[in-house]
Design a protein around this nucleic acid. Structure first.
Lengths: 128, 128
DNA sequence: GTTATACTTCAATGAGCGTTGAACTATTAT
DNA sequence: ATAATAGTTCAACGCTCATTGAAGTATAAC
């Protein structure tokens, strides 16, 4: 019932991955790659972005472990990018766990001011 | 089976929310608020952060609609923050849908170089 | 060898943002 | 009235990072 995923390592992991996700072009790249393995040029065409910029974002995604790189065996100029399924699954699970609304109690007031003459003055009659 | 959540509005929504999440202190604040309604001071004590910094991050979370604000009815100096359950649920669902690994086909090569003399040279014998 | 292709790396710019300390507001206590 | 408490707002600093254009690398085509 409690959110146990707040170890420094997990918070650090989530932060890094979230920073990578928090960019519209990278979200679109991820979406395109989830439809199948693609080269830099196809992504550039689809997103109307310069190849060096695509390359930059793919580098960020790759450093985060979210995408894989592979060269064409026949024409080594072509580079294919694909989603790292395990990494995406892990991230999806970790996020779903961290943000799981089931972890929220319906009513739980953690802190209150101490009761003083001023605050007691306006208390409901039967209240404590 | 396909990821349909790439409308400009949804990409924009996800980007904004992810930017808000992609900060370690805000993740910790969210985690603490998921345990119950708390004031600025309690969060500051728990995270060993200055109250103005807590206030800043709470402002960001509030602007994103992720947390609610409420004043103590007896001592109006105290401000209580709580998780906006609906907003968190919506975000959790949207993220889970966007990153859902089920959307990834097992094999789907989108683009290839055209076949040329050079590339045909090294093709396997029975290849097309 | 020369040119073309696919892609990466580099340097520079500019915007955004977390953090800090100080000033400020509003409310309650004495 | 004066002081204390809870919290917010403001200005300034530094750092990160997306974007751009140019240069660079590697491979294939001619």
């Amino acid at each position: 019932m409690d959110n146990l995923s707040t170890t420094p390592e997990n918070v650090n992991y989530l932060t890094q991955q979230l920073k990578v996700l928090a960019e519209p072009n990278r979200l679109l790249i991820i979406n395109l790659l989830m439809q199948g393995t693609q080269c830099n040029c196809m992504l550039g065409d689809a997103l109307k972005m310069a190849p060096n910029l695509i390359s930059h974002h793919l580098g960020v995604l790759r450093e985060a472990g979210l995408v894989n790189l592979e060269r064409d065996p026949l024409d080594a100029r072509w580079v294919y990018y694909s989603i790292n399924r395990e990494a995406l699954t892990k991230l999806n699970t970790a996020l779903g766990e961290f943000l799981n609304p089931e972890h929220i109690p319906s009513q739980n007031q953690i802190c209150r001011p101490e009761l003083t003459p001023m605050t007691l003055r306006d208390l409901p009659v039967s209240g404590n």
